[in-house]
Computed example of a mutant assay.
Amino acid sequence: MTIALPRVVSAEEWTAAREALLRKEKEHTRAGDRLAAERRRMPMVQYSKRYEFTGPGGTHSLLDLFEGRRQLIVYHFMLHPGDKAGCPGCSLLVDNMAHPAHLHARDVTLKVVAPATAPEIERYWNRMGWTIPWVSAAGTDFPADCGIDGGFGVSVFLRDGDDVYRTYFTDGRGGDQFVSTLRYLDVTPLGRQEAWEEESRGTDAPSSWWRRHDEY
């Protein structure tokens, strides 16, 4: 296919177009700030069931996953018992996870939870070269209690003393916000090069080009 490139204009016209777009970007940012404030004010539901996760260091409760911090982000990773490899999309997301020290500084712990067994998760983590903390939910009701039916998602929990509450959940396109690779692509003229974005920019179906980083 022939790719439709942006128009070539003068520096003055480019500056005017940039300023017009900047005004829209600023409003988008402010709208995002309002949505984030609404998200922070979401009600919460208590999780009092005693789950037994398995990971490095042995078994852990849901409370243990906080590592003493007040807030916990859980990424529900699609690696199931018997799978030889994790989901490419989940793997892309984990590739984009930042150094946890920055989250720790704001009283947040990040954990990846998968329904596969601990040895299966460890093998895949070693293949990917990841150091992101993980635990296995194999044999627990945790995925089902979080509404994860074989899929993926992000859950957020808050600890008040020894009481644990769930405050937020997203899945589907909500996962995009955690993938910085997509944020970088979204500022390029060709974007993600997927058919839904813009005519003559690409023909790929959404996420169809994603691969595990050792498979490109």
Rank of each mutant, 00 (worst) to 15 (best):
Ala118Ile: 07
Asp160Gln: 13
Glu67Asp: 11
Trp130Asn: 06
His99Val: 04
Ala101Tyr: 00
Ser91Arg: 02
Lys111Thr: 12
His104Tyr: 08
Met128Gly: 03
Asp141His: 11
Gly58Phe: 06
Val154Thr: 13
Ala138Tyr: 15
Ala36Met: 07
Ala105Pro: 02
Phe53Ala: 03
Val112His: 06
Val156Cys: 11
Arg41Glu: 15
Lys49Met: 02
Arg173Asn: 07
Met97Arg: 02
Arg159Tyr: 00
Ala101Cys: 00
Phe152Trp: 12
Arg70Asp: 15
Arg40Phe: 13
Val113Lys: 07
Pro100Phe: 05
Pro81Gly: 08
Pro81Val: 04
Cys87Glu: 10
Tyr51Leu: 06
Tyr75Thr: 01
Asp145Glu: 09
Ala101Glu: 07
Arg123His: 08
Gly139Asp: 06
Asp171Glu: 13
Asp160Lys: 13
Trp134Thr: 08
Thr59Pro: 02
Met44Gln: 15
Asp163Val: 13
Val156Arg: 14
Val45Leu: 12
Met78Val: 11
Thr131Lys: 12
Arg34Tyr: 04
Met78Gly: 00
Ser61Gly: 12
Cys146His: 04
Gly82Lys: 10
Asp107Asn: 11
Val156Tyr: 10
Arg69His: 07
Thr167Phe: 09
Glu122Tyr: 00
Gly172Leu: 05
Ala36Trp: 08
Gly68Ala: 06
Phe152Asn: 14
Val108Thr: 15
Val94Ala: 10
Ser48Gly: 04
Gly57Lys: 09
Gln71Leu: 14
Pro43Ile: 09
His99Thr: 06
Gly175Leu: 15
Leu72Lys: 07
Ala105Glu: 11
Leu92Trp: 03
Arg106Asn: 06
Gly82His: 06
Asp107Ala: 06
Glu120Thr: 10
Leu35Gln: 09
Tyr75Phe: 13
Glu67Ser: 08
Phe169Ser: 13
Arg50Asn: 13
Ala114Glu: 04
Asp149Ala: 14
Phe66Cys: 03
Val108Ala: 01
Met44Arg: 15
Asp33Gly: 03
Thr109Ser: 14
Leu72Trp: 10
Asn96Phe: 00
Leu63Pro: 00
Asp141Arg: 14
Val94Ser: 00
Gly139Val: 05
Asp176Pro: 00
Val156Lys: 10
Lys84Ala: 15
Gly86Pro: 09
Pro143Thr: 08
Ile121Phe: 09
Gly161Val: 08
Leu110Asp: 11
Ser48Leu: 04
Gly129Leu: 08
Pro88Ile: 12
Asn126Glu: 13
Asp95Trp: 06
Arg173Ser: 12
Leu79His: 13
Arg34Pro: 00
Glu120Gln: 15
Ala36Glu: 10
Val74His: 05
Pro133Val: 11
Thr109Lys: 10
Ser155Val: 03
Ala105Phe: 02
Tyr165Met: 04
Glu52Ser: 14
Tyr47Glu: 03
Pro133Thr: 12
Asp149Arg: 14
Tyr168Gly: 03
Gln177Asn: 07
Cys90Lys: 04
Val113Asn: 02
Ala138His: 15
Tyr51Asn: 10
Leu103Ile: 02
Gly174Phe: 01
Val108Ile: 15
Arg106Glu: 10
Cys90Glu: 01
Thr59Leu: 04
Asp95Cys: 04
Phe77Glu: 05
Asp160Glu: 14
Glu38Arg: 13
Phe142Gly: 02
Ala31Tyr: 04
Ile132Tyr: 01
